[in-house]
Design a protein around this nucleic acid. Sequence first.
DNA 1: GTGGTCTAGACCACC
DNA 2: GTGGTCTAGACCACA
Lengths: 117, 117, 117, 117
Amino acid sequence: MDFRKHQPIYMQIADVILSDILERKISDGDRIPSVRELAISLEVNPNTVQRSYQWLQDVQIIFQKRGIGFFLSDKVYEKTMEVRKEEYLRDELPNTLRTGKLLNVGIETIANIYEKL
Amino acid sequence: MDFRKHQPIYMQIADVILSDILERKISDGDRIPSVRELAISLEVNPNTVQRSYQWLQDVQIIFQKRGIGFFLSDKVYEKTMEVRKEEYLRDELPNTLRTGKLLNVGIETIANIYEKL
Amino acid sequence: MDFRKHQPIYMQIADVILSDILERKISDGDRIPSVRELAISLEVNPNTVQRSYQWLQDVQIIFQKRGIGFFLSDKVYEKTMEVRKEEYLRDELPNTLRTGKLLNVGIETIANIYEKL
Amino acid sequence: MDFRKHQPIYMQIADVILSDILERKISDGDRIPSVRELAISLEVNPNTVQRSYQWLQDVQIIFQKRGIGFFLSDKVYEKTMEVRKEEYLRDELPNTLRTGKLLNVGIETIANIYEKL
DNA sequence: GTGGTCTAGACCACC
DNA sequence: GTGGTCTAGACCACA
């Protein structure tokens, strides 16, 4: 975890889980580390991990089995794609395009770069 | 100004100045509104405008004549463009577009968002 | 058992026993499964079944013969019904229905949910 | 606030806001107390109020003006109705009906009580 | 002044 | 053991 970044630690933690899903390291039904375990291994406060997991649960990436732990939901890969996409379309893309507009970078230039990737 | 956005108000204000520069509405040596004037017309706290101007001064887009006001630096258009555009086209834009491609965001969607900004 | 529900597992288990009583599947003096047996068949922790039985014992639905097992109390059907139904029809049900009416939840919706349980 | 209830304090706080809305004491655009103010007047920790407000923001009952405070969203009455309804249909109603089924209370009885209210 | 995040440490219900 | 909630107190960015 990077304590200096602007992005909150709890979102950084969530991002690690999301990345693991997108890289197919973990998938449907897998158990993820307990709040305490992860807190110790990342050297952060359990409350902070708790917040990550709460958020992941809110967006239905994980679900809880009472008293047992957290597990990845069904179709977690697809859901993760959606969640990432939503965030991308809401924040990252508009921010970059706004800067582009400011710098007089036309949509043609952008389309051009997009095609060449 | 949009008080609901994630982007800080003071950066939104700075962006307005930058846009005006890039659209050639204002240029080298021009005086920009006083902190107090702009605060009133935008209905924001003067401290917030102050912070915008501080930032613009830090990146040498404007300079202050004490007791008189703020003015645009020399070659302000070129300065802004050169510094930012090069980095933007080389890194920021391609990175964002690459992520978009991975998330199946088409160029039409991007063009759409670009137009609406 | 549904590990995702808000209702504790041990109450879900108790509800199963209560249902069996009210549906006359079991009655006065019958032996109910041992903690261990039930835990295995429901795939839950024995402690959890233990807690259900403790609760049922507290409300005098069952009693324990030490070293032998748990058994249904006398007049268990009547006991369960009387104690709960009276309070239910007087308070809980009307209260919930009143809230429903305020929220524009029609009787059809209610009937629908009732059938699906 | 009732510190003994099963319901978390932060949801109790949210409920107070929701009730005020449904009773038309406050409406669209009104500012609600700052996190600190409310924390002091309710004698709870600011973090707890913060959580309430976070939840209310998530369900779009309130929105934030950066550095100024929280305000009620547009159509807050209608939204509150929806939110309450959602919770009611998901938890309160099924729970009550489940108990009813357990107690052999038929849908006819329920419909009867519903009509008479 | 506003809200947002984080830690340390506690207590609870539940499995 | 698991997660959920809460307090006390701190520091930060922002208006």
